[in-house]
């Protein structure tokens, strides 16, 4: 990472710390904010958060590793999460899954070469009455079929 990038990341994190507080309870909102902006929390970001909250970097890492929406490794600019729980499974999740992997040429758990999209599975999204459901970043899409899902992916920048 360039020094300039480091400085701007530090500044960014400092801003979050000022907003959410420099106490332990602010850790999750701070990590969520970093993640929202960068789609992962880098080693350097973890060290900076730890320094500013005065906790050990290992503590920060252990929190990140616990939550399925927090990540310590780089990922795509857009995160697509398809629900794989049974209610969605019963109404056509498999067809959507196959179409999406075919179209993007990657499997679930992978990121497209251009770094645009990361595909993931997720558990029940609370949309079981309108499945199959998926979340793109934080937006929810329901009643998917293969074509609808592909159209949504094509619109992603």
């Amino acid at each position: 990472m360039l020094l300039e990038e480091k400085n701007s990341l530090s500044e960014e994190i400092e801003k979050y710390v000022n907003e959410y507080g420099n106490n332990r309870a602010a850790l999750m909102p701070i990590l969520q904010a970093v993640q929202r902006n960068h789609n992962y929390v880098s080693d350097f970001a973890q060290q900076e958060v730890a320094r500013m909250l005065d906790i050990h970097p290992v503590e920060v890492y252990s929190v990140i590793s616990f939550y399925s929406f927090l990540h310590s490794k780089p990922r795509g600019r857009n995160i697509v999460r398809l629900c794989r729980t049974i209610a969605c499974d019963m109404v056509g999740k498999d067809a959507v899954e196959k179409a999406v992997t075919r179209e993007l040429g990657i499997g679930f758990g992978e990121t497209t070469k251009d770094g645009k999209i990361t595909l993931e599975f997720t558990n029940c999204l609370g949309m079981c009455d309108q499945g199959p459901a998926m979340i793109v970043n934080e937006r929810v899409f329901v009643k998917l079929d293969p074509e609808k899902a592909i159209n949504i992916l094509n619109e992603i920048k």
Partner: peptide
């Protein structure tokens, strides 16, 4: 937190 599979009434 409504995470139980099949639950969406809190939504």
């Amino acid at each position: 937190d409504e995470g139980e599979p099949g639950t969406f009434k809190d939504r």
